Simulated assay, not measured.
Amino acid sequence: MAARYPGAKDRRGSRRCSCSDCALANHRDPLLTAGRRPRLAELWALVERVRQVPFNPNITMAEFIALSRRRDALDPGVEVEETWDFERMERDVHAALRRPPSWEL
């Protein structure tokens, strides 16, 4: 059996090579991300809950997570181990969420 991995070369997987959790992606890619990168998806869902802004105007990351856990969900192929300093980013996100939002561009 051929190895499966995230990315555009995965025939049954993502259709793009850009961010795995892009708000502009089709429905399939963030759904796969929720299964492949559950820690990142949960962090997105936390930001949604605290800031009350959905990941995507049509569907929240929390909904993607729920869909990815269904028995009939797409097979994500692999769960990606976050090899970069995920804990640091997680701490930074939690710290930012304790401050009032800044909507200035």
Score class of each variant (00 low, 15 high):
L31S: 06
G35P: 09
A23R: 15
N58P: 00
S14Q: 15
R71L: 09
R36W: 01
A96Y: 05
P54E: 06
R51V: 00
G35K: 02
E79Q: 14
D10H: 10
F64T: 11
E82P: 09
R36V: 01
R98C: 12
P54D: 03
G7E: 00
R71C: 06
I65N: 04
S68N: 02
R69K: 13
F55Y: 13
L31C: 04
R36I: 01
R69Q: 13
A25T: 06
G13V: 07
R88I: 06
R49G: 00
P30R: 04
A25W: 01
A62H: 03
P38M: 04
N26D: 15
L31W: 10
D29I: 02
H27F: 15
E104Y: 05
R99Y: 03
P76Y: 05
F64Q: 07
V80T: 10
H27N: 14
W44G: 01
A45V: 04
R71Q: 12
L67S: 04
D85C: 03
A23E: 15
M89F: 08
R37H: 11
R70L: 11
A95Q: 14
R12Y: 08
D29T: 10
P76H: 08
V53E: 14
E63C: 02
L31M: 10
S18P: 00
V80E: 12
L32F: 08
L43C: 03
V47W: 01
C17Y: 09
L31T: 07
Q52K: 08
L105H: 12
R36H: 00
P38Q: 00
A2M: 09
R12W: 05
H27E: 15
R12E: 11
K9H: 05
R70H: 10
A45W: 06
T33L: 05
C22H: 08
I59H: 12
R70N: 07
A96K: 12
P57G: 08
N26V: 11
A73E: 00
P54R: 14
R15L: 12
S68V: 01
R4F: 00
V50T: 07
R11W: 00
